[in-house]
């Protein structure tokens, strides 16, 4: 009911929640790696403070995740490998972008399925109405 008003939950447990990820690791010199690293941080959920990605979270666990991911990116592992690593340990819950699999087909396909259904309904309505329009015209 009240967007943007964090009232309880982890807000009060952690001294400082709205700080973000700065770690002792030096930034990547390779901009491609840096970009990949930052993008990955956006897609991993911090499980300690539940509604944040690890890029924005100040929780110690988020720092550990970042360190781990930083190391893996540095070792040349792909995004898919890194995500798999996280999922094997924490489950799909750790990904903010749900993977496409049996239990998420409806999630990813739902909106487009609905759009398709709606288009069909619109087409039917238009067909009926346009016949009606023709009749009105001919009866005039």
């Amino acid at each position: 009911m009240k967007p943007w008003i964090p009232v309880l939950g982890c807000v009060l447990l952690l001294v400082s929640r709205f700080a973000f990820a700065i770690d002792s690791e030096p930034p990547f010199t390779n901009p491609v790696l840096e970009h990949r690293y930052e993008h990955l941080l956006q897609e991993i959920r911090c499980l300690q403070c539940m509604d944040e990605n690890i890029a924005n979270s100040d929780a110690p666990l988020a720092a550990d995740f970042r360190r781990q991911i930083h190391a893996m990116v540095g070792e040349g592992e792909s995004d898919a490998q890194i995500k798999r690593y996280m999922v094997q340990r924490y489950g799909d819950f750790v990904l903010y972008k749900p993977p496409l699999q049996a239990n998420t087909w409806l999630l990813w396909g739902g909106p487009f399925l609905l759009l398709l259904l709606a288009f069909t309904a619109v087409a039917l309505v238009i067909r009926r109405r346009s016949r009606l329009a023709d009749q009105e015209q001919s009866s005039r």
Binding site: Y96, P98, T104
Partner: peptide, 22 residues
């Protein structure tokens, strides 16, 4: 997107997060 994690949880079909990327 908002309710999907809840529905999966209620049906015991897994635990997922639906976030900004979705």
């Amino acid at each position: 997107g908002t309710l999907y994690p809840l529905v999966l949880g209620a049906l015991k079909l897994g635990q997922i997060s639906v976030g900004p990327p979705y």
